[in-house]
Design a protein around this nucleic acid. Sequence first.
RNA 1: GGGCCAAUAGCUCAAUUAGGUUGAGCGCCACUCUGAUAAGGUGGAGGCUCUCGGUUCAAAUCCGAGUUGGCCCA
Length: 1068
Amino acid sequence: MSRFGEVDDQYDPDELEQRVFEYWDDVDAYEQTVEHRSDGESFFFVDGPPYTSGSAHMGTTWNKSLKDVYLRYLRMQGYDVTDRPGYDMHGLPIETRVEERLGFENKKDIEEFGEENFIQECKDYANEQLEGLQSDFQDFGVWMDWDNPYKTLEPEYMEAAWWGFSNAADRGLVEQGHRSISQCPRCETAIANNEVEYEDVEDPSIYVKFDLAEREGSIVIWTTTPWTIPANTFVAVDEDGDYVGVRAEKDGEEELLYLADAKHEEVLKEGRYDDYEIVEELSGEELIGWSYEHPLAEEVPDHVDGEGVFEIYAADYVDTHGDGTGLVHSAPGHGEVDFERGRELGFPIFCPVGGDGVYTEEAGKYEGQFVKDADDEIMADLEDNGALLASGTVHHSYGHCWRCDTGILQIVTDQWFITITDIKDDLLENIEDSEWHPEWARDSRFRDFVEEAPDWNVSRQRYWGIPLPVWTPEDRDDDEDMIVIGTREELADRVDQDVDPEAVDLHKDTVDDLTITEDGTTYTRVPDVFDVWLDSSVASWGTLDYPSDDSRFDELWPADLILEAHDQTRGWFWSQLGMGTAALGESPYTEVLMHGHALMPDGRAMSKSKDILIDPHEAIDRHGRDVMRLFLLSNNPQGEDMRFDWDGMQTMENHLRTLWNVFRFPLPYMRLDGFDPQQTSLDEVDDALEPLDEWVLARLQSTKAEMTAHFEDFRQDKAVDALLEFVVEDVSRFYVQAVRERMWEEDDSASKQAAYATIYRVLRESVALLAPYAPFISEEIYGTLTGEDGFDTVHMEDWPDVDEHWVDEQLEEDVSLLRAIEEAGANARQQAGRKLRWPVPRVVVAADDERVVEAVERHTGLLEERLNAREIELVSPEDRWGELQYSAEADMSELGPAFGDRAGQVMNALNEARIDEPSLEALEDAVADVLEDDEELEESMVSFVTQTPDDIAGTAFGTDGDDRGVAYVDASLTADIESEGYAREVIRRVQEMRKDLDLDVEERIALDLEIDDDRVADLVAERTDLINEEVRADERRAVEDGHRKEWDVDGVTMEIALEALAAAEASE
RNA sequence: GGGCCAAUAGCUCAAUUAGGUUGAGCGCCACUCUGAUAAGGUGGAGGCUCUCGGUUCAAAUCCGAGUUGGCCCA
């Protein structure tokens, strides 16, 4: 880009961004930026790999934008940043998509299709999906190492998982065992608890009577899963609960039923009993040891058998006041808590259900039926056996497979675990080694989760995943004598077959057939693959390709920063901690930034499947990448959700447009004057700087300081607020407006050069500060400002440091006071009906404190200019200006303690009081009715407020909500003021007409002016020179063919005509 | 059902650390200004600070119980 080259009149995000993309490509901007920092201190960032399904949604976009802003910031701070992106490419979600694509219904279809083929399809699909994400992220302007992402399906990465797992095994933390797990009967695999999605469904709700074996009567249980009754092993009660025996009558027959006291009424109603009577009151403890008969003993002849089964036991999962009857049907072969209690009690674990949800032979007459389909038959059989007390249905939430939406079943199967419960203390200790933003996420949430985390079931009975690197002796499949392989090298060394460690693809189809023979024993591989959460859990070393590449691990590990949404507390934040601790004994990260989710504008969660979403591509189409990023990044990243908001997007676009206009305003002048920022640096023009130049430079310093502090605090949102406030409020609305006339001067001047140097510095540093947020517009502005003198890209710039030379707190405070006075003056003008165009003879500033006096004294000229006042009159705090009345404003922190519950009443009286003297005595008189005899007002309780006289308009001014004084505008008219006022009215209208004709700023004109009112005409004539100069009129004469318009100026008719002189000459 | 977080103007959010007359930006309405400006300025409308209780002279703020939303867990 050439320095001060022509730029677009209008900020056009789309064109600009395309231009910048091409430019980045031309100059290898990313590569240069990385290279530029290659000698810097290392910063190890680890990207949480998004799952490769579909395209980027708003949440992912927010996440990657946040990562981008911090990585760019860190680079500008000099760090050599690891920025390898990652993709999570294995797992059930992809398998089910591929199954859908191929029209498969279950595992048999896959087996027929062939494992190898199926794995290839999954690989292709995952790679395909990755492309969409890659191009989206790049399109959002995110700078990461896109040529070299880590992919969980690559051998180097899979090896990293093997290595981690084998490390855990070496530390004795890998174990195979029987557990109650959530099984998806369609996918025929265990799924993790956090993969279970709960949905409202209608299920059977039955009350079943279990006949007591050694005494009269039956106990009543309740269940929504009749299909688990065949596996019943015991019944649980609450030891401390209250139970009753009820003699109930229905259709003339009497029964003795036992159940919880709190539930008996409800249950008997369900059973439609005619009448009943409580005949016994017992504690749960008294029920313990009672034995009963299995209600389906005949239908399931091979039902569980063993010492102590079919008896009542205490269990802490029983509640006599909740759902059910206070007596809980317990089947250790199914439910998780049942399983735990069953094991404590030493019972055999009976589960007559296969991984496909079909009853096995052990289920007797139900063999071969899908369990849910058998519900009806089981209920019918219970009815026939006289065991069904009542049956109905219930709406409740029930777990479903996250991928295929099939209802899950709790069954007991053999699975492989990392026994993280053995290292709970280490885990809790390692939590302390990481700092979280926000802190409560770690201390209130993450720690709770870790404390209660069960062993990690890492095995899945599927195909598309990292195979478990576990080989077991041929004749057994448990964890005795297992061999766990840690690397490809080790695999090649130990297996019986020939394997090339460089070339081997570690997927299931290639390792399934490998065997190991050692000491005369042949080992075969456990056929399972890893839970996909294990894949990403090793990302902190997988990112570095460790262990196959060990060149960086020692220096970089653990990660300096990870940054994800709050759902990862139970996801990646946890899985990494678990794996890091199990494999290496340490937390794999030291800093966590946790953001929230992107919500719909109305606060609902976004959902792709329900088509409730804002597509980032639409946001880009409407406003551009910089705007979208700015919007996202202006939200608090610390744990809180963000509502998407189109108005907010528009506001950001407006801000960028303002920046664009600020940037392009001085360019024509700088070009015209041949301004060279290298020669005319700030140092060169130091002496010529005017107070406002020094002020805007001071503001720049405090903006930098503020931004850096916010960044260090992981509050990029506050940082960008500060920057935009500076650019929009201070630079655009104040500085540029004030400095305009200096730039218009036709002659060169030191003052003009000073203004150029100032705005040049301000713009150049501002775009550096903006660059991490809005990399495109920053790049274009930077390029135009620097030409050949800067880096090839703004992103190679250092983060701007505070330059002590320009820090000037006094000046900042002065100007904030002047601006407050100016604002009040504008208000007062409006009240007086006097436009800013018309001068006023004087403005009286009544200062409340010395600080205001100082500010006004130091900058009287500036204030006159800004207020368009001929004179500024200053009234010191100790003096007072005549003709004023006063009222009082109460300080509640003083009134409260002094007046107690009457403070409010006193406050109101003070507000309403009107007095001539601002004295406590006068005030006390005025509010005498609310004061009691012994009460007095104190100086500290009130501050006096002036009340404006009628002829003069006054408005209070203040800073940060504190009153600092009053600005009174004297709006009286004199002939001289009217003369200038009307002249300015003429000037403005001529300017507008010049604009109508699209005349160049320099273009000379001939002007024809006729004013109906003689008095006004004379007044305007007094300012002929001023008018001619301002509108660049060289001739005053009749204009025949020019642009002609009639204006009404406050009731005075003016006819104005003009033509361009060059055009007039050409036509003659 | 449990844990955590949030709830303040039509919208997005401050103010909560340390209790003291609730603020900004955007949007809306009116007026106004404009040779960098899809801008700017002034004013206005708009708030039982989610509800109910408690502590206190005084609560958006502290405490308790709810309601709604989000995340996580069951």
